[in-house]
Nucleic acid binder design. Structure first.
Length: 423
RNA sequence: GGAGAGAUGGCAGAGCGGUCGAAUGCGGCGGUCUUGAAAACCGUUGACCUGCGAGGGUCCGGGGGUUCGAAUCCCUCUCUCUCCGCCA
């Protein structure tokens, strides 16, 4: 959520910058400002009326206490009309507030000035590309064939017991999963992140806090009976730990890492994008989250980007970093880097991490604030990124490292897997 | 799942329906004292809305009600604790 003050003070600037997200905010902002005006007007009325009734009640109290019941009763008569008026003012105020909120949550975050212009993925800016794209033998096959052939991933079995998009990892495949998770967690710990094991189900307040609700509820699996949702990423429970929290400056930055399974409905996806491990309903991910002072959040974003590219490098995978354009960054994000690895048998880049700075967008929703020595409170900045999401990493490892002897495991993982080749 | 108890400021813990935003203690901050620290003493110490400010308003788990007036009474929801049952 954007701050109403920012909108009030920079109306045109906000509209201009939101247009970079292909979002025409003019009408919405006009109505927001109007409702804000109304809200303050009703608030003033209500305050004034309350002030009067408080005054009267006090006086009546004093009169009754000192035995002047008649005078007290006379004063009481004045309270009736005051009460009706304040009921009215309160109703108007509530309505204005509700409408204002309804509209405020429709406004996406403002993209940072370094976000490239553009309306679709084609306009994303390649920050850099590194590593060599492996030459595979003619007999090379994509991971969705490799998995079953080596008996390490069974897609059909997942379909049998659950449905499409829920693969079963077997034997060394399961071992590889576990190894990656532990490797990622250990690396993050080394970089100063503290580990969290969050719940996999969240309530709607948490979904709202990080921006999944109300607009993207169709992307989460829900449990209506208990009013809960399955987490689409551990970002949601981990960031919401700090909902309604006020930090001292010395508490920051907060740096957390969490492994969790992630659940996504992925309604509307189709074709080659969902083939094999490319897009799943359940997948494993290690996520990093930071909460920082506002003026340090872009340093943190760069640091997280460096950290994630470091992981990919260690796994010996060809890497590409994208600075997402205005039209491609998410609703809540101010700036996002996507990290991609090259999957050599599919001959395509696969997104394995998305690192975003939400600035105060989530904090505003969550009331996550910093209170400095002067006693002023201001929203903190929140960031998060995958470090990393497993399935596409596994796809790339399987495809890129296939040899006629089997699939070679990247060296850094061998201490974790206990094997160096899948054959 | 059944029965009961409770939810108050960073924490602990008071609070006959009437200047209660809330006693007291601890913690935090500032000061006196000290070479320094501790102790002691003094002062200070919630959030939010609105206003240039003075000020005004809201908040004692959430929502609703009674009343001129609610932290205090009533209803309801949520959560916590105790006992019983079941159980990884």
């Amino acid at each position: 959520m954007l701050s109403i003050q920012v909108i009030r003070e920079n109306q045109l600037e906000v509209i201009r910058r939101l247009s970079m997200k292909n979002f025409d905010a003019a009408e919405l902002i006009a109505s927001v400002l109007e409702l804000d005006e109304k809200r303050r007007e009703f608030q003033k009325q209500l305050d004034e009326l309350n002030s009067q009734s408080n005054q009267l009640a006090r006086e009546i109290g004093i009169l009754f206490k000192s035995g002047k019941t008649d005078e007290g009763n006379r004063l009481k008569e004045q309270t009736g009309p005051l009460k009706t008026r304040s009921k009215e003012a309160e109703a108007s105020l509530d309505a204005a507030k509700r409408e204002l909120d309804e509209r405020m949550v429709l406004l996406p975050n403002i993209p940072h000035s370094s976000v490239p212009k553009g309306s679709s993925a084609e306009n994303n800016e390649t920050v850099y590309e590194e590593g060599t794209i492996p030459e595979l033998p003619d007999a090379a096959i994509p991971h969705w064939e490799l998995g079953p052939r080596f008996g390490i991933i069974d897609f059909a079995l997942g379909t049998k017991i659950t449905g499409a998009g829920f693969p079963v990892y077997l034997n060394l495949g399961a071992g590889l999963q576990r190894a990656l998770i532990n490797f990622f967690l250990d690396q993050a710990l080394k970089s100063g992140y503290t580990e969290i094991q969050p719940p996999y189900l969240i309530n709607s307040a948490s979904g709202f806090g990080t921006g999944q609700l109300p607009d993207k509820d169709g992307q989460m699996y829900s449990i209506p009976e208990d009013d809960l949702y399955l987490i689409p990423t551990s970002e949601v429970p981990v960031t919401n730990i700090y909902r309604d929290v006020i930090f001292k400056p010395s508490d920051l930055p907060v740096k957390h890492v969490a492994y969790s399974a992630c659940f996504r409905r992925e309604a509307g996806s189709y074709g080659k994008d969902v083939r094999g491990l490319n897009r799943l309903h359940q997948f494993d991910k290690v996520e990093i989250v930071q909460i920082t002072e506002p003026d340090l959040s872009y340093d943190a974003l760069e640091e997280m980007r460096e950290y994630v590219t470091g992981l990919i490098r260690m796994l010996e995978l060809p890497l590409r970093v994208l600075n997402l354009c205005g039209g491609d960054i998410s609703f809540a994000s101010a700036k996002t880097y996507d990290m991609e690895v090259y999957s050599a048998a599919q001959k395509r880049w696969l997104e394995v991490s998305s690192v975003s700075n939400f600035e105060s967008f989530q904090s505003q929703r969550m009331k996550l604030r910093i209170k400095d020595d002067s006693g002023k409170t201001r929203p903190a900045h929140t960031l998060n990124g995958s470090a990393l999401a497993l399935p596409r990493i596994v796809a790339a490892i399987l495809e890129n490292n296939q040899t006629d002897k089997g699939i070679r495991i990247p060296e850094v993982l061998v201490p974790y897997t206990g094997f160096s080749i899948i054959s």
